[in-house]
Design a protein around this nucleic acid. Structure first.
Length: 584
RNA sequence: GAUCCCGUAGCUCAGCUGGAUAGAGCAGUUGCCUUCUAAGCAACAGGUCGAUGGUUCGAAUCCAUUCGGGAUCACCA
């Protein structure tokens, strides 16, 4: 229970007393009100809009209600000041002992401070990246990858049982194209002049090493053979090689999935047929024709009978075709079957992190999931908007076709994994994101992530100095939690503790809204408070952390520092950045 | 024709599910290193929150309309 929740319950009971005293009739449900740290510290430690939310129900102006509450709260020793302000806010200032206690709570919790149990250990499958193994990870993938990873961290922190999952298509036309391209590169590697890569195959050099590995394994085995002979084995080889490369790329930026699933398994182990049959059994499959797509000029549109799924029964705008004209499955059917395997594995909550270019995906997949789970499972889709890549202000067109891509590898090598992660996580996922490669590279040293890292390094440095200055002192968190903190009375000390106490609340809000970027901003602000405090010590010796002739205050400040490093480390863990002990 | 996202300082972005005088970084100007790390701090300057209406004690935030940018609406994932 956070300090804010605690105050909230106290206020509720106080409100009933006040109402009884004045003969007010409270509504059966007290309207929801906020208890939070106001933006402006002048407004006290804690502000509540309680009075304002009750104006309607009580038929009284907010200030009248607020005044009555204030009168009742005034004689409580927990509050050093209680006042009405603005339109009817009640501003409270808590006794410093309360904040000092909170700091001990933080120290005892360690980096688990901010861990919550709102997830109730519910299993959640978070699927992200899921790029098909036809090319290297590029700038467009990085956003979803980092976002999904941070979201997973966040969901774990609030008590979900998270599985990080990657699903790839290794059975469709795209991987056939991959295989053909590799075969061409293979001929090239064996000395043949292949000229330009023909349209319809993948350009770019990244398949050359794959072809060379194929030569190393198989020699000239596939030369002069018909496509039927080499397509499947080369496809398998190429998919494995690309997935290996993708895994390595993701690893560079600190991303590891728990489970990799693929389309072929779903088809070959019979799951797909089973799911299709169960849909038939539920009478959700029929053969019919679809109207032509609206708003699009389809000159060559001819209605054709197709195998359709009655997704409109589940809120979809139209029924969906599960098979192509040639009788093979359209992508949606294996995807349905794949999601069925998730449900079979016990996931009632599934989150898919997708690119904005997958717009209609949810609309189509949700009905299917409702059908196969009989409504018991829920799919959430989070759509990361496009990343527009610039190079010194000039737009770079990302196109696999032309081979013009900025790869994840380039980004990480030039800018650094921490900077890339942090840059992505200082934007909300649903707004478009402009990434200027040249500028980011040039300013990589100015990246805000180092501002946070630096705060952590400074704290660590002081703790090292403290160990030298007071060799007998025990500076581990559990020991510092036992220190007498009553000497931490300055407004700056208390303000810092107060800010640390916002952490659990922030984690909760970030998880509920699925917005890990809030963590970044919080950490940045926390680092700012710390740096500011630090510099005050230059003018005011009583605000320094290490004060040689005052061991008692120094130890209390070490407790504060430990609290700061604890929360920073706890937050950086969500972002996926390692805290640094030292920066020079 | 329909759906989704975005529009906030010169640029890149926040704005805590409706709160008090709308914030930060970068860019610009000015100060601060004999003392715990200057990858830092302090200060100045910069805004019709795209527009119009509505909801209420109160709107950048919610609703409607509208303009602008992006994405999606095929049997490609």
């Amino acid at each position: 229970m956070t300090i804010y929740d605690h105050i909230k319950t106290l206020l509720k009971t106080k409100l009933t007393d006040v109402a009884a005293l004045h003969g007010w009739v409270l509504p059966a449900e007290i309207p929801e009100f906020t208890v939070e740290a106001p933006r402006d510290p002048k407004h006290g430690d804690i502000a509540t809009n309680l009075a304002m939310t009750l104006t309607k129900a009580l038929g009284k102006p907010p200030r009248v209600i607020a005044d009555a509450m204030v009168a009742a709260l005034k004689n409580d020793a927990s509050y050093t000041s209680v006042e009405v302000a603005g339109p009817g806010f009640i501003n409270l200032r808590l006794a410093s002992t309360i904040w000092q206690e909170q700091l001990k709570t933080i120290l005892n919790a360690g980096t688990h401070y901010g861990d919550l149990s709102i997830g109730k250990k519910e299993k959640v499958c978070i699927e992200y990246v899921s790029a098909n193994p036809t090319g290297p990870m590029h700038a467009g993938h990085v956003r979803g990858a980092v976002f999904g990873d941070a979201l997973s961290n966040l969901m774990q922190k609030v008590g979900y049982d998270v599985t990080r999952e990657y699903y790839f298509n290794d059975a469709g036309t795209q991987v056939d194209v991959l295989a053909r391209t590799v075969h061409l590169r293979y001929r090239e590697a064996l000395g043949e002049a292949i000229g330009d890569i023909p349209a319809g195959l993948y350009p770019g050099d990244y398949l050359k090493p794959v072809a060379e590995k194929l030569v190393a394994r198989d020699g000239k085995k596939w030369l002069g053979q018909p496509e039927e002979a080499w397509l499947l084995p080369i496809r398998e080889f190429a998919v494995a090689a690309m997935m290996e490369a993708i895994r390595e790329d993701l690893n560079m930026i600190g991303i590891k999935h728990d489970v990799f699933s693929n389309e072929r398994d779903v088809i070959e182990n019979g799951t797909l047929d089973k799911v299709f049959k169960s849909l038939e059994d539920k009478d959700l499959i029929y053969v019919g024709t679809l109207p032509p797509p609206r708003g699009k000029e389809m000159e060559n549109w001819t209605p054709e009978p197709l195998t359709l799924f009655r997704s409109s029964q589940f809120g979809d705008s139209s029924d969906r075709s599960l098979k192509k004209r040639d009788g093979t499955w359209s992508y949606i059917m294996p995807d349905i079957a794949y999601h069925y395997t998730k449900i079979q594995r016990g996931f009632k909550l599934m989150i898919n992190v997708l690119g904005a270019d997958h717009g209609g995906y949810l609309e189509r997949m949700r009905p299917a999931i409702a059908a196969i789970s009989d409504g018991s499972a829920k799919l959430d889709g989070l759509f990361c908007q496009m990343v527009k890549v610039f190079n010194n202000g000039e737009a770079v067109k990302l196109s696999k076709r032309s081979g013009n891509i900025i790869t994840l590898r380039e980004m990480v090598e030039e800018v650094g994994a921490d900077s890339v992660r942090f840059t992505i996580l200082t934007r909300s996922f649903d707004s478009q994101f402009e990434f200027d490669f040249a500028k980011t590279k040039e300013q990589s040293r100015d990246n805000p992530v180092f501002y946070i890292q630096y705060a952590h390094a400074r704290c660590s440095s002081v703790l090292r100095h403290a160990a030298e200055m007071f060799p007998k002192a025990d500076l581990i968190a559990s020991a510092l939690a036992q220190v007498d903190l009553s000497v931490l009375t300055s407004e700056d000390d208390i303000a810092l503790i107060r800010f640390l106490c916002n952490w659990p609340k922030l984690v909760e809000a970030a998880a509920q809204t699925r917005e890990p970027h809030r963590v970044s901003f919080y950490l940045y602000e926390l680092a700012g408070h710390f740096h500011s405090f630090w510099n005050k010590g230059k003018d005011d010796a009583t605000l320094r952390f290490l004060i040689e002739d005052n061991p008692a205050l120094t130890m209390a400040r070490m407790a504060l520092l430990k609290g700061i490093t604890t929360v920073i480390a706890s937050g950086l863990a969500v972002i996926g950045v390692k805290p640094l002990e030292e920066m020079r």
